[in-house]
């Protein structure tokens, strides 16, 4: 069974985005100077794929990282987890801002891995530009089944079993392959640590790169992007210090006043 995990990486959230903007004269984001890492959702998708591989010798895992050469270090980090194959798909000019175009490109990426995908895993958000559109868009564009925000995946008798939480209910869904599943983070899919020998092997191994097909002009154009300051909040900013008992007494009084006043 062919399992493909699509990874995007994000700009390291610890780094300031002050230089973020568009490359002059283009609709491409200039963030290549900022360090990249896998997002928590990339990690959850990758771990899910690795668990499926570990559980079933018939599972073949291909990890695909989108992006340009600035992502090669990240690809080596992914390769250290020893998927059956790992390659980078794309170049610095590839943009995923237009979901319809992105879905076509991601479909091409999956086909570069296998002509018969059974399961495509993605994080619930794909990279810095996506808020959950790309996984269902890919499924719809390819005519594959879809399940969003799963936190556990199993394969049983050719079916895909998916656990997810929707509001106050837990759901178990069955999907027939091929299917796209977006993964959310949970304790059970925290990414393992790679073996040091595999890290060293991945550092020396060549990076496989697959070029994307030429994309048509996007229907949705990115016109501007910039870092934004934190939203202004009206808090009084009163910070208590001193003996904990006195702080707690003041907090209790604050809560009593707040809850009584609102009642």
């Amino acid at each position: 069974m062919q399992v493909v995990v699509l990874l995007a990486g994000v700009v390291d959230p610890k780094w300031r985005l002050g230089t973020l903007g568009l490359r002059p004269g283009t609709a491409q984001v200039e963030d290549t100077a900022l360090p990249r890492k896998l997002s928590p959702f990339d990690e959850a998708a990758l771990e899910t794929a690795l668990q499926l591989r570990d559980a079933d010798a018939a599972v073949t895992v291909t990890a695909i990282l989108t992006g340009g050469a600035e992502s090669d270090g990240l690809l080596r980090a992914v390769a250290a987890f020893r998927p059956h194959r790992a390659f980078r798909f794309g170049d610095a000019a590839m943009s995923l801002w237009d979901p319809a175009t992105a879905a076509r490109l991601l479909g091409a990426a999956v086909r570069a891995a296998t002509e018969a995908p059974a399961l495509v895993l993605m994080g619930r958000e794909f990279g810095d530009s996506d808020d959950g559109v790309l996984a269902p868009a890919l499924a719809e564009a390819e005519g594959w089944a879809f399940c969003g925000l799963a936190h556990r995946v199993a394969l049983r008798d050719g079916d895909i079993l998916l656990h997810r939480t929707r509001g106050a209910r837990d759901e178990i869904l069955h999907r027939r392959p091929p299917a796209v599943v977006s993964i959310t983070n949970e304790r059970g899919n925290r990414l393992r640590h790679p073996l040091m020998k595999n890290v060293m092997l991945a550092r020396r191994a060549p990076v496989e790169v697959v070029a994307p097909p030429t994309a048509p002009p996007p229907a949705l154009a990115l016109r501007a992007i910039a870092a934004v300051p934190p939203a202004q909040r009206g808090g009084a900013g009163r910070v208590l210090t001193g003996p904990v008992a006195a702080q707690v007494e003041e907090l209790a009084a604050y809560l009593r006043a707040s809850t009584t006043g609102a009642a």
Binding site: P230, R233, G234, G235, A236, G237, R238, V239, L240, T241, V244, A245, Q247, V248, E249, E250, L251, A252, Y254, L255
Partner: peptide, 29 residues
Amino acid sequence: DPEAEIFRVADLGLVAPWQEVVPELIERL
């Protein structure tokens, strides 16, 4: 941590370990 970013947006902040605050607060409430 008195340097925690959350204090910049808080209406009220307590610089104290939660282990001491939460049980005491429950008792008082």
